[in-house]
Computed example of a mutant assay.
Amino acid sequence: MLAPGAEIVLRAPAFHAARLMLIGGEPLSEPRYIHWNFVSSSVDRIEQAKA
């Protein structure tokens, strides 16, 4: 978690392209499960997506 007003410094070598995506908001009310590029609040849904 970042404090309000905190200074953030990002560095990347000049010869490498870089992208950054910063997303904020309230914490989610339930856990998330991740497998490869599948994300869900249900393990069963992850298994369906894998199948």
Rank of each mutant, 00 (worst) to 15 (best):
R19K: 12
P4N: 12
R32T: 14
E47D: 15
M1N: 12
L22N: 12
I8S: 03
H35C: 11
P13N: 09
L10I: 08
S40V: 06
E7P: 01
I46S: 04
A3Q: 15
L2F: 09
P31A: 12
P31Y: 05
I46H: 02
V43E: 11
M1Y: 12
E26H: 00
I23V: 15
D44I: 02
R32I: 14
A18K: 11
K50G: 07
D44K: 00
A6D: 09
E47C: 09
V39R: 00
R32K: 14
Y33W: 12
V43N: 02
L10E: 04
A3N: 13
Y33D: 01
P4S: 13
I8V: 13
P31M: 07
S41L: 00
Y33N: 03
E7C: 02
M21C: 10
I34V: 15
P27G: 02
H35G: 09
P13S: 11
H16Q: 04
P31K: 07
M1C: 05
L2H: 06
A51F: 04
L20I: 15
K50E: 07
L20Y: 08
L20E: 13
R19L: 15
A51H: 03
P27V: 02
K50W: 06
W36V: 08
F38G: 14
P31C: 08
S41D: 01
R45Y: 03
S41M: 01
D44V: 03
E7F: 01
A6E: 13
V43H: 04
W36N: 08
P4R: 06
R19W: 15
A6G: 07
E47H: 07
D44S: 07
M1S: 12
A6M: 09
P4A: 13
M1T: 11
A14N: 10
I8R: 00
I23K: 02
A18F: 15
N37Q: 15
I8W: 01
L2K: 04
G5S: 04
E47L: 10
S29Y: 05
P4I: 09
R19C: 14
A3H: 09
N37K: 10
S40W: 00
A51L: 07
F38S: 13
L28S: 15
H16W: 08
E30Q: 03
R32F: 14
E26C: 01
Q48A: 12
P4K: 07
I46N: 04
A3K: 13
P4V: 11
M21A: 14
A17I: 10
E26G: 00
L22W: 09
S40Q: 02
P13K: 08
E47G: 06
F15N: 10
V43D: 05
I23F: 10
R32V: 14
I34D: 04
P13Q: 12
